[in-house]
């Protein structure tokens, strides 16, 4: 019943959703000379800087692992989560003038942001593939190869999408009642950036910390993608199940919270 309702609404407002995503796209690239090329260039440059810092200054060395690809998977996945949640966060607040005048289902704004960030994310996969193609050497065992486990990559993406969407719904609703969330979330993202093994190997940490860090949903998505891309193997059952459970639970919780609170939004405009 509820699912059917959501589905009908989605069909009804599909066009609006597309138009909102198109708007974001046009606004984002309208003024820059390189335009959409930045989606490819930005993560590439980011990775170069970090690779330089961590391999040269801190002498990170992971035997038999392609560090560039390791870094890039982390950056790209975390980048999606951070971009999507950051833009969703203010999506309700910044559309108040609209929500206050015309009836539009409010859930469409965070969804549009998450999908828009998703398109950007797919573009950042291009530099990732590029790095995979040109880096690594077969002798050191750091070359990445196409393998059968690539088939579960869409599943990984689905899980991180569900998680991000749920988080976005939760945050965008909270921000309506408490504008401080904008700043608080910036700090939380920075913390997450460090507690998620993006640029360092998890094995570097003491065992008890490893156990804790493995509970981080973002670790599950990034870790799974690395298993497939770097080591050509199936992610562990823990990761496979954990990914779905965290993603699904977050999505349902976020949606439920948003749904419960959305009628109160107009009072806080």
């Amino acid at each position: 019943m509820l699912i059917k309702n959501i589905y009908h609404n989605l069909i009804k407002y599909k066009f609006l959703l597309i138009e909102l995503i198109k708007r974001d796209f046009k606004i984002k690239y309208k003024r820059s000379v390189l335009g959409i090329l930045w989606s490819v260039l930005y993560p590439l440059l980011m990775m170069s800087v970090m690779a330089l810092i961590f391999s040269q200054m801190f002498k990170f060395n992971m035997e038999g692992v392609n560090f560039l690809v390791y870094l890039m998977t982390g950056l790209v996945m975390f980048g999606y989560f951070s971009e999507a949640t950051n833009s969703s966060l203010i999506s309700i607040v910044s559309n108040f003038s609209l929500i206050n005048k015309v009836y539009i289902p409010k859930y469409i704004f965070p969804l549009a942001k998450c999908l828009f960030a998703g398109i950007n994310f797919l573009l950042t996969l291009i530099p990732l593939v590029l790095i995979m193609l040109i880096s690594g050497s077969p002798e050191a065992g750091t070359k990445c190869y196409l393998n059968i486990y690539y088939l579960i990559i869409p599943y990984i993406f689905l899980c991180i999408f569900m998680f991000t969407l749920g988080m976005s719904y939760l945050l965008s609703a909270l921000t309506v009642f408490l504008r401080d969330i904008i700043y608080i979330w910036g700090i939380i993202l920075t913390i997450l950036n460090y507690v998620t093994p993006i640029f360092y190997p998890l094995a570097m940490l003491p065992t008890y910390l490893q156990t804790i860090f493995k509970l981080n949903p973002l670790y599950m998505y990034i870790g799974s993608l690395r298993e497939v891309l770097l080591f050509s193997r199936m992610p562990s059952t823990y990761l496979l199940v954990g990914m779905f459970v965290t993603g699904f639970v977050m999505m349902i919780f976020g949606m439920y919270f948003f749904r419960k609170k959305q009628d109160k939004f107009v009072y806080y405009m």
């Binding site: 066009f15 609006l16 597309i18 138009e19 909102l20 198109k22 708007r23 046009k26 606004i27 309208k30 003038s97 609209l98 005048k101 015309v102 539009i104």
Partner: peptide, 22 residues
């Protein structure tokens, strides 16, 4: 409501139309 100043008239017709439920 929902006009975006950075978009062209053509783009705004579609965006605003979508907002109004067309």
């Amino acid at each position: 409501a929902g006009f975006d100043a950075d978009l062209t008239a053509r783009e705004n017709i579609y965006l605003n139309g979508a907002i109004l439920g067309y």
